[in-house]
Nucleic acid binder design. Structure first.
Length: 553
RNA sequence: UGGGGCGUCGCCAAGCGGUAAGGCACCGGAUUUUGAUUCCGGCAUUCCCAGGUUCGAUCCCUGGCGCCCCAGCCA
């Protein structure tokens, strides 16, 4: 036991734990993160992971990674592997081996028999439809099954037959005998075991009956000595059942604590929907950089530390909350600003000829201006450059403070000289296609005497520029809450991906998969880990830079 | 309309009867070879509403109002 990290924010779960520790009800903190391997982890899971592993770490306890694999119809090893990778990438350690609910199938089966013997469970032979009808409604009590009072012997025999594969799917089911009139629907004789002739990803065809979540989860926690079983709010109504099984079985009793799940604006979080986006090819896959999955964010370039910061920043509570996507993006900027090397690249090129500069120079440009220790890279400069179209205005508008290029205006070329726009050339359509500028050759590494040049723009030497593919990502949905649309798919943002290219400074060609750079004045870009080849990087825009000028305009 | 929850600044969120933390956003201003970063300063006489108890209530009581979850042999 230890005192919690004083820097850790107070929340109701820590309060409960502190009380448990103080009162001596618990002498350690053991939590668990229990994903079902039926899909990839998303940012909502990250909240749970950070919470569970974070609590365990702060209290010097332990957090188990346990796969809740009780439904072979939906679960696959591919998901197990992806989940392990994501949890590890987020920076958490689950010890030697991950655990599996399926490791406890034998024990669970014995416990089911125990309850049958106690007269607390019975085999029902109604059809699923009959069961549904007899369950009653929210306002009417249910009716007891005609099979509810079978003898213990008959129940034992039928359950054994179920296990032995003598009955087809759906023909029988093991139910807890509780109360068909309970106002809590979960207590109206809930299902414990169903027949499922499906191979399990780990137990193969050893079993053809599988435990339901309610009959499995609490006991799994109990076996592992979990002290605080943290789950989301929708399981609150299941808590009486969770406690019921633990009590009837007379085993170690963990405490279930529920918190509000994460909702993020402009995205959907249900695994069913994410799976549909993947299956119907609305996205490239689970790790599409637009997906709210951990793998998608990793590929997009979001640092694990940023996700952890986000999870801490949003807090934990019981009130339904919606977090704006910009909060996550801000965490990403915060992390990347501190770590990413700076580079120059132009996305919307406009040609600039420097009339008084015929040579080629190899300039030194810092990798990270705030951290001189990170050194410099070589940046070639010549008389023909590409700059961004947004940095020139033929007729700068009144906005008092415009300090980019325009006729007769001066501007600093980032890491290079100050230039002045002497003339500009248009094509027959009236579009500006080239700028003729003169450079003040006495301004490299120093400011000119007597005048102040406020504007600074990025550029790249035309003859040295490297053309690299760039994917500009935007939010996947263009409605704050896609679930409010008639069909969430109709809220899909058709412009969530724009493929284009950038003219990049040469040093960028050595960029390695997964590396993130700040393209100065533009945003952060990460080398795609799937589509890049050695010497041929493909860049994903991770997030833009904050742009207060855009707001002023 | 049965049961279980929730309602503190634009968005999160502390607070647990003693007179409203913090973060993000936002608004000023300073520094700056990224209109970025950084840095300073501002930002709820008020806690869903109405009564009540109390010297004193966001915290207790009563009654409203609003929102979320539950009728899978999913988790």
């Amino acid at each position: 036991m230890s005192t919690p990290d004083t820097a850790a924010p107070s929340n109701f779960i820590r309060t409960i734990i502190d009380e448990d520790l103080q009162s001596g009800r618990r002498d350690t903190v053991i939590t668990r993160f229990p994903p079902e391997p039926n899909g990839y982890l998303h940012i909502g899971h990250a909240k749970s992971i950070c919470l569970n592993f974070g609590l365990a770490a702060d209290y010097n306890g332990r957090c188990n990674l346990r796969f809740d694999d009780t439904n072979p119809a939906k679960e696959e090893d591919e998901y197990v592997d992806a989940i392990k990778k994501d949890v590890a990438w987020l920076g958490f350690d689950w010890g030697e081996q991950p655990l599996f609910a399926s490791d406890y199938f034998d024990q669970l089966y014995r416990w089911a028999i125990e309850l049958i013997k106690k007269g607390k469970a019975y085999v029902d032979s109604q059809s699923a439809e009959q069961m549904r009808v007899n369950r009653g409604t929210l306002t009417e009590a249910g009716k007891e099954s005609p099979y509810r009072n079978r003898s213990v012997e008959e129940n034992l025999e039928l359950f054994e037959q179920m296990k032995n594969g003598e009955h087809p799917d759906g023909s029988h089911i093991l139910r807890a005998k509780i109360d068909m009139a309970s106002p809590n629907m979960n207590l109206r004789d809930p299902a414990m075991y169903r027949i499922l002739h499906a191979p399990h990803h780990r137990t193969g065809d050893t079993w053809c009956i599988y435990p339901m979540y309610d009959f499995a989860h609490g006991q799994e926690d109990s076996i592992e000595g979990v002290t605080h079983s943290i789950c989301t709010l929708e399981f609150e109504d299941h808590r009486p059942l969770y406690d019921w099984f633990v009590k009837e079985l007379d085993i170690f009793a963990p405490q279930q604590i529920e918190f509000a799940r994460l909702n993020l604006s402009y995205t959907v979080m249900s695994k069913r929907k994410l799976l549909q986006l993947v299956n119907e090819k609305h996205v490239e896959g689970w790790d599409d950089p637009r997906m709210p999955t951990i793998s998608g964010m990793r590929r997009r370039g979001y640092p694990a530390a940023a996700i952890r910061t986000f999870c801490e920043r949003i807090g934990v509570g019981r009130a339904a909350s919606w977090i704006d996507l910009s909060v996550l993006e801000e965490c990403v900027r915060e992390e990347l600003n501190a770590t990413a090397y700076r580079r120059q690249a132009v996305l919307n090129p406009l040609k600039v000829t420097i009339t008084n500069y015929g040579q080629i120079e190899q300039l030194d440009a810092p990798n990270h201006p705030q951290q001189p220790g990170e050194g410099c890279r070589t940046l070639p400069m010549s008389g023909t450059l590409w700059i961004d179209r947004d940095d020139f205005m033929e007729d700068p508008p009144p906005p008092k403070k415009y300090f980019r290029l325009g006729p007769g205006r001066e501007v600093r070329l980032r890491n290079s000289y100050i230039i002045k726009c002497d003339e500009y050339i248009k094509n027959e359509k009236g579009e500006v296609i080239e700028l003729k500028c003169s450079a003040d050759l006495d301004t490299l590494g120093k400011n000119p005497e007597g005048r102040k040049v406020k504007g600074i723009i990025h550029w790249v030497s035309a003859e040295h520029a490297q053309k690299v593919p760039v994917r500009i990502y935007d939010r996947l949905f263009n409605q704050e809450n896609p679930d409010k649309a008639e069909n969430y798919l109709s809220a899909l943002n058709p412009a969530s991906l724009q493929e284009t290219f950038a003219l990049a400074e040469p040093s960028l060609m050595e960029a390695k998969p997964g590396e993130t750079f700040q393209f100065e004045r533009v945003g952060y870009f990460t080398v795609d880990s799937k589509d890049s080849k050695t010497g041929a990087p493909v860049f994903n825009r991770t997030v833009t830079l904050r742009d207060t000028w855009a707001k002023v305009k």
